[in-house]
Computed example of a mutant assay.
Amino acid sequence: MKLLLNGYDSGHGDEIIGLLANAEHLECMVAFAKSSASETILEPLKQAIARGMTARMAVGLSLFVTDPAMLYELFKLEKNSQNKLELYMSSTEETFHPKVYAVREPGGHRVIVGSANMTAGGFSNNYEASVLVNDRDGALMASIQEHFGGLIEEGALARATMPRINEYAKLYAVHEAWRKMASRRAEKICRGDMHSLEVLADWLADMKADDSPCGFTAQQTYRARDRLIARRRVKEIAGLGKVTRDTFLEAYEGLLGCFHSGGLHRGKGIVSQKSNLVISALAELLELKRATPAEAFELLHSHFEDIERAGINVLTEILHALDNKRFGVMNRNAVSGLIVAGYDQYPLRPLKTNVTPELYEQFCRDVREVQTQLELENLSELDALFNYVYWLND
């Protein structure tokens, strides 16, 4: 057994070519194959097949990383191999991700299993790690062949044909064009050179087409109902006065049930220990008339500063419940959504120690701008979109 690493003097490509030198049969499964590796692998592969080696190869199409050009080269080699080479392509929605090179030789079997794909990076340039196993009794080789056959039987692998490669090539061209454009735009957004709502707009279109409880129409209904109930419960808590911890906890649980930030219930017991601060904070908040986001935030923050587990998400959910056209919910989901659009000045984990009233004021301006450009009715709808994007990408 030997550890393989790419280095200055040798790499995976050298070892894989070495396997072909005396091989009688090759079993090869890779996630990606790119034309960058063609100069390294194709000629040794042709020579091995010409002297009698048989081979079975499977190439993954997941994520559109495999080059169609490499598939055409391998398919051409198969057609000229006089049935010595069988070429397969992945045919599954799940990611096809193995990297296996296994050969039968006159004196036994050798197998490489690890991280190296059939690419220039995998063969020499990338940091890769694999194990070369001297499989003398052929047990490992037999397992690989059985697994390969099983993937064919279950339909995860399909025999390569020219129509299949052509269809993949069309899809690859589209994905590659969009990937390059997205890369250029992402660089500009990361540098702060531009804002772009294209990604959020695409997700919004998907969300509007989604008829599940996570879809836009359902979320409109749920959130409109929940916000009305939350407003009533904020007022009820503000009027509690001096109450027992259990009475407060019951009212506070009812309020949290109307919010859409995750994990709020885990801190309810701790918050209930400072119920008097929460009650007085909400009572004072309701006395404010047309307060700016900074003013409303500062008032709640001054009361909540010493209340553990009453963080920025709780604070801004309360403000949002009172006015969903001026106050946005500030949590990880919302910040992540803004980053996608190029608004990157906010901490990924908003905390009472890193969000100031001025920063929250700016946050509210930014989310209102995004809401307007996406033609959404209010910030509740935008928050629903942020959650949709966050959880489906998590």
Rank of each mutant, 00 (worst) to 15 (best):
K99P: 02
D226C: 07
V113Y: 01
N324A: 12
E305Y: 12
V335Y: 04
I165H: 04
L379Q: 05
A294K: 06
G52T: 06
A55T: 01
P44S: 07
I279L: 03
Y101T: 12
F327T: 09
A209S: 08
V389W: 14
S62G: 13
H301I: 04
G311T: 06
K274S: 15
E305R: 12
A37R: 01
S196R: 08
E317F: 00
D67A: 10
L61G: 02
I189V: 09
E78L: 02
A218G: 05
V131T: 02
D306K: 14
L4V: 10
L204H: 06
M194K: 09
V111P: 02
S272L: 08
S302A: 03
F259S: 09
R290M: 07
D193F: 10
G108I: 09
L5Q: 02
A230P: 02
M162K: 14
V133E: 06
L5P: 00
G108V: 07
V389H: 15
K84V: 10
L71F: 04
R104D: 04
L255H: 06
A37G: 05
H109C: 07
L197A: 04
T40K: 13
K76S: 15
G122F: 01
S275C: 12
Y72R: 14
L338I: 00
E146W: 06
Q273T: 04
G122M: 00
R332Q: 12
M57L: 12
N387E: 11
S124L: 03
E317D: 12
D202S: 11
L315I: 07
R245E: 15
G215I: 11
F248C: 11
L204F: 07
R110H: 02
L74Q: 03
D137V: 06
Y168G: 01
L42D: 09
T119E: 10
E308K: 15
L26N: 01
K289Q: 14
A205P: 00
T66H: 03
L87H: 04
R266S: 15
E253S: 07
L256H: 12
G311W: 05
T119L: 03
P163R: 07
A160C: 06
L61I: 08
V355I: 15
G60H: 03
E24S: 01
G328V: 07
V199D: 04
T161S: 14
H25G: 00
N333H: 14
A156G: 01
